Simulated assay, not measured.
Amino acid sequence: MVILNYLLVCFIFGTTFLAVKIGVDASAPPFLSAGLRFFIAGVILLGWMLLRKKANLSLLLRKELMITGFCLTFGTFSTLYWGEQFVASGNAAVLSATGPMMILLIQLFVMRQKPSPRSLIGCVIGLLGVVLLILPSLTMAWSVWILLGSIAIIMGELFYSSGALYSKKANKYFRDVSPIALNAVQMTYGGLMLLILSACTESWNIHSFQSAGAISSLLYLIVVGSMIGHSLFYWLVSRTTPVFASTWLYISPMIALAIGVLFYDEKITWLTVIGAITIIAGTILVNWGDLKLLLSAKKRAETIEPVSYST
């Protein structure tokens, strides 16, 4: 069951980037699309957790969840949706894998924590991969917008990394609360902020969501991307470790690249492939310490007793 759910998480997260791309290409306003996605998913998940008595409405009054909603949902996805107007979905997925490198940079320059030499090398390799990934776009039409879209997606990862570091400290106040309930509240807050941003910057027109592409994109992202994907992710965290669950970062970008090429006629070059592999390699090096602990823990468990996964 664990392996099956893990593969589902990798596949789902790998497909969401193309779903976002289909929506914005269908002229759905990016901030409005993102806001509807997360606000609706958050409200439904929170309602479900309330019915199961695994959450209470007082969570909506916690500033910690408002801050994580601002970083993890609002900041991350406002930039992703805007950037995907100009950037191919596969490239957007690979650029989103720079999150661990952004965490390292924040720890180095803001928190004054000294990383290991291996992590620093991984960060440099990953940033080199970003350059290789963006380089082909500079010879294409609309290169300025592709470059700005890529920068926006990377900036979104700074929001995500800040939120991840903050939530790690804030979660100590919510030890007895289901992670799914916490995620539902932060998605609700983030979605509401995105809707406010949309109201201030975009024209709300019902005709924007009348196309099959816009409607199918929104429904897929609400149900499969946010509700099922994130719930499976937190189920994996509870059954394994956060490090293991987060290794989707190494697999999903490659799935997104392949899906974009096969089903959406996105163009890919050898330089793009090399850049993608370089970014993933850098991400693995940055997280090598945690991955090594994960592998050693697995080996210890196997020497004590056989590992069995039951449904």
Rank of each mutant, 00 (worst) to 15 (best):
residue 1 M to R: 11
residue 6 Y to E: 01
residue 16 T to M: 15
residue 18 L to A: 09
residue 23 G to H: 01
residue 26 A to D: 05
residue 27 S to V: 05
residue 29 P to D: 00
residue 30 P to A: 07
residue 35 G to C: 04
residue 35 G to A: 03
residue 40 I to Y: 06
residue 46 L to S: 03
residue 46 L to T: 03
residue 53 K to E: 15
residue 56 N to E: 04
residue 75 G to V: 04
residue 81 Y to N: 01
residue 86 F to G: 06
residue 88 A to D: 11
residue 89 S to N: 03
residue 92 A to V: 00
residue 96 S to P: 01
residue 99 G to L: 12
residue 100 P to M: 13
residue 101 M to K: 02
residue 108 L to K: 02
residue 109 F to D: 03
residue 113 Q to E: 05
residue 113 Q to W: 02
residue 117 P to S: 10
residue 124 V to G: 13
residue 126 G to N: 01
residue 127 L to R: 11
residue 132 L to Q: 08
residue 135 L to D: 08
residue 137 S to A: 14
residue 137 S to K: 07
residue 139 T to D: 15
residue 145 W to I: 10
residue 154 I to K: 04
residue 154 I to Y: 07
residue 162 S to Y: 05
residue 170 A to T: 04
residue 176 D to L: 09
residue 176 D to C: 03
residue 177 V to H: 12
residue 177 V to A: 11
residue 178 S to V: 05
residue 179 P to G: 12
residue 183 N to C: 12
residue 186 Q to I: 11
residue 187 M to C: 11
residue 188 T to K: 03
residue 197 L to G: 03
residue 204 W to K: 07
residue 207 H to T: 14
residue 208 S to N: 14
residue 212 A to I: 14
residue 220 Y to H: 10
residue 220 Y to I: 04
residue 223 V to M: 05
residue 228 I to G: 01
residue 229 G to H: 11
residue 236 L to E: 09
residue 242 P to C: 15
residue 243 V to W: 08
residue 246 S to K: 01
residue 246 S to M: 08
residue 247 T to E: 04
residue 248 W to H: 15
residue 249 L to V: 13
residue 250 Y to T: 03
residue 253 P to R: 04
residue 255 I to T: 09
residue 261 V to G: 12
residue 269 T to P: 05
residue 278 T to I: 03
residue 282 G to S: 06
residue 298 K to T: 13
residue 302 E to K: 14
residue 303 T to W: 14
residue 304 I to N: 15
residue 311 T to E: 10
